[in-house]
Amino acid sequence: MNIQYRPSFATEELVFHGNESNAEGKALYFPVHQRKILIDSESHPDDYFSYYPEGQIIDSTEVIYIGTLDDMPCYCFELKERYDEGDMQYFGLHDLYGVIDEEMLGIASRAVQMADFYRTHRYCGLCGRTTHYVPEETGMQCNNCEHIVYPRISPAVIILIEREDHLLMARSKHFPEGIYGLVAGFVEAGETIEHAAHREIKEEVGVSVKDLNYFASQPWPFPSSLMIGFTANFAEGEIYVDVNEIEDADWFHVDDIPKLPEKKSISRALIDHFIDKHAGHE
């Protein structure tokens, strides 16, 4: 496990079920509309979430408590309609990366996911009646049959596959031009994350690996995944690309790594780990 890795979009200081009271009545607010946060663009980044959203903004929906940061409760709410007034603008989580500090980015990502959960679960999946938010359960409960659902988190594996000083990298047809990444995929129902890693590697690039070891994890709020990173050594096989998933895959020497993903992803952290490991090797 890489104990030095600090993932983006992760919150470690927010107390999810903390104290909602604040002696000075202060709070942080995250107004969300279709996965984007409404912010006063003229304010300083440290003050982005410090303003009480009065009137039609906050009256349009149920306010959801998402945790407490340093005795200051944090709230999110899903705006039913897009709101444009004055210097208020919508920002996606990608837009906020590098603008606000990492902890606040993690809280913002939780706010977006919880607001999205609220927006997509307003009605019961069993009987079709309306639901309400239950803070102590972090769930949406039906007002009729009392069925309750919780925020969906989709686990996915991502694997760095090395063969001495070469790294197996793959390119999805959805990637920006020139970008290569690592083999990744979602965990299926009924399988372990280890089995998912071996299966995804075999399905996407045709090789087998050994020495599968946990590296770290990262919340990936696009829309609601948990990326679980592994390192592995090549065992056997030739690269055979699944053209439905992968556009190209190849072995790259540590000194000839192609254009890398951005630093905000665990994919980049794994690749940097490989490069650092082989730094200065002949």
Score class of each variant (00 low, 15 high):
Q89C: 14
I193Q: 14
D272R: 03
D250C: 08
T61P: 05
A23Y: 15
Q141A: 09
M114F: 08
L182P: 01
I158F: 11
D211A: 07
Y150D: 03
F230H: 02
P258Q: 01
I193L: 14
P221D: 01
I239E: 02
S267V: 11
D248V: 08
S109A: 07
E203A: 09
G128W: 03
D250A: 07
E162K: 08
L212M: 07
H174G: 08
G185H: 04
Q4M: 13
Q141M: 12
G125L: 07
Q4P: 10
L270S: 00
E13T: 10
A269D: 04
L79S: 01
C74Y: 02
D47L: 10
R152W: 15
Y75D: 03
R268I: 06
A184W: 14
R122M: 09
E12F: 13
G181L: 07
Q89H: 12
A27H: 06
Q34M: 12
G55R: 05
R152T: 14
Y90E: 01
W251I: 04
G206I: 03
C127A: 04
R110W: 15
L69P: 03
T61L: 10
A249G: 05
A115S: 07
F175W: 07
Y214C: 02
Y29I: 02
E20D: 14
A197N: 05
S224R: 09
P45Y: 00
G67R: 00
E78V: 05
D95F: 02
P219G: 04
Y51Q: 15
W251Q: 02
V187D: 06
E62M: 09
F175L: 10
S50G: 10
D165C: 13
I107S: 00
E146W: 13
I148S: 06
P221M: 02
E62K: 12
G98I: 03
G178S: 06
F222P: 01
G125P: 06
M140V: 10
E282A: 14
I58V: 09
R6W: 13
S265A: 13
F175D: 05
L14G: 04
F9D: 01
T11K: 01
Y214A: 06
H94V: 13
R119G: 11
Y5P: 05
I58F: 08
E200N: 13
Y133R: 05
I266L: 15
L28T: 04
G128Q: 01
N22M: 08
